[in-house]
Nucleic acid binder design. Structure first.
Lengths: 343, 343
DNA sequence: TTGTAGGCGTTATCAC
DNA sequence: GTGATAACGCCTACAA
């Protein structure tokens, strides 16, 4: 049955064929028009096609385009935790750049769950994405090989694997932590408590602990690590543990929160327990949102630049897509220490 | 050229045709296998196909499936502002439900920009999405008609339009604001200051102001509205203005922040300026993240339930997709007042 | 139980 | 200048 009779269902999207029929040309000509090959047709034809496209509100079907072209202008970013503003900033940085160069960025959340990550990864495999930005949940990606086989351009954010395969964007975790350690030493602290989630789970935590310890222990200080579960934070327990470790605040101690939510908890404790900082106890932590400063402008903190990390990773991803080769292996985005009075 | 010779480029994704060749059956049989029609083939065939799919790590090409089926299992959610945890919670609630029923949810950010919203909307039109969740930036959607023509299932979150077309999920803004107004009256306040971004821009703000004013002015109190730009918050200016309005705290005044970031700013001011609350000045605000309570557990606040809003909207969207009809016009998700001591 | 073939909406290579 | 037409990978009547 020829297509130029009107047996369309209502709301059926208009196709290139519809436009061709209405304009009385072939779909090839319409396609040429759409791709700007206006020199290959008469001015009238072009005008007519243009008008009819406008009138009928025609937009090419991306799915068909993607199928044909075996790629799309959509890039995915799989973040570890949308609740974490760090992840959101990664998205924003990447999105800003990608939008400016004609890609769309689509976010999915592995929600800190490795199985979920695995599942989403397989689902993304056959999506005809142009590329993928991944902030892995842990130190390794499970579906590693499947992605490799696919030849899909990938960037790894905020973590790295033992065997690097894709380029990595990270904060200069070790370096900045050394600086922080040095600062703690310089300020005359006698002991250091590191408040963190399970250290072994991510490279960033490992590097931070390493950096701080190196510097601080070289100066003869003792470090303690308190590992907590962010989702079941027991303020009183932590407060008591800190009390024990500091011999009830007789020892001048710096407490370092390796992650913003933990720093927040610490600030909350400080307010509630009415502890006097930083005379005997100094606090400092990693934090990336401006918000925390609204609350306590005097906090000393280590500020990463997740937005820049997102932007840079997007640039490198596009480079991969275009050149089909890998730029650098690993790029460090500088974090900085903002000195307040809490340390 | 027949497809069963190996002229594939390396990394070319394996197709149903490849599997058919390797298994020595037709693609129809493989397709049947994939769709679980195992009764329509011999056990050996099924076993063989299954094995070969495993071995070759085959996953059907979603793009081709979508093109053929004219729909997909992907749902989009366009949020007004990823920086706002409210938007993120909407996403999470929707995602949780959709994931459980086999859809994927993909987030895009209009970033509070109506033009951006417009553009993304047109880009989404031809994406073969199964449905779309939208938290509009303002009281109206521009590309309204284009979406209508498409017959795409849509849910509107957190805003509503003058001419409702799609079902809406909202907080019970007016009702809860009336309750809040009553609470303020009951607590013996003499004046009310409402701190908000431009009221006219969104229905939720309008309804909140309306609810509070109704209740409070019925009791003879005066209300003042301070409209600020969240992104250029001038703490000192707001502090001074509050000072003027309260005759330098001689008048017992309740300050209501209509949005979490503004409440945060208020708390920040309170800390920095060392103002004594709530003897003369009470503060209360809309806030949705638990975080704010870590900082100040004594805050009285209005907590919406964005996660439930996301979940409910997702359910209703799926209902639309399945039944092709609209459930209810508008659903209100209850907010609640958490009483602390700050008001 | 299994295969053939047409079509989903595009793109692009040929022809004319 | 313009139009057929063969893919892209998959689904699904309809045959066999």
């Amino acid at each position: 049955m020829p297509d130029n009779e009107y047996n369309k269902i209502p709301n059926a999207p208009v196709t290139i064929q519809d436009i061709a029929n209405l304009a009385d040309v072939s779909i090839a000509t319409v396609s040429r028009y759409l791709h700007g090959h206006l020199n290959r047709m008469s001015a009238e034809t072009a005008e007519r096609i243009g008008r009819i496209i406008k009138e009928n509100n025609y937009v090419p079907n991306k799915v068909a385009q993607n199928l044909k072209q075996k790629t799309s202008s959509t890039i995915g970013i799989m973040v570890a935790n949308v609740d974490d503003s760090f992840s959101v900033e990664l998205y924003k940085g990447a999105e800003e750049y990608l939008f400016s160069v004609g890609y769309e960025l689509v976010l999915i959340n592995s929600n800190g769950d490795v199985d979920r990550e695995q599942q989403l990864l397989t689902e993304m495999r056959n999506r005809q994405l142009a590329g993928l930005l991944v902030q892995p949940v842990q130190n390794k990606l499970h579906d590693f090989t499947a992605l490799k086989d696919l030849g899909l351009p990938v960037m790894i954010l905020d973590r790295h694997f033992d065997e690097p395969y894709w380029p990595v964007i990270e904060s200069n975790n070790e370096e900045i932590s050394q600086q922080l350690g040095q600062l703690i030493v310089d300020k005359g602290y006698e002991e250091v408590i590191i408040l963190t989630e399970t250290v072994a789970a991510t490279t960033s935590r490992q590097l931070r602990v390493k950096g701080i310890q190196e510097q601080v222990e070289a100066a003869g200080l003792i470090t303690h690590i308190i590992e907590v579960d962010e989702n079941h934070f027991d303020g009183d327990a932590v407060h008591n543990r800190i009390g024990e470790l500091t011999n009830h605040r007789q020892i001048k101690t710096a407490i370092v929160a390796l992650k913003e939510p933990l720093l927040l908890q610490l600030v909350g404790l400080k307010i509630r327990k009415n502890v006097k900082y930083p005379q005997q106890i100094g606090i400092v932590g990693f934090a990336d949102t401006p918000m925390i400063n609204i609350l306590d402008p005097d906090l000393t903190l280590v500020r990463q630049n997740p937005m820049e990390m997102g932007r840079m990773s997007a640039k490198m991803l596009v480079a991969q897509i275009k050149n089909d080769d890998l730029p650098a292996d690993i790029v460090h985005i500088k974090a900085e220490i903002i000195e307040g009075t809490s340390l």
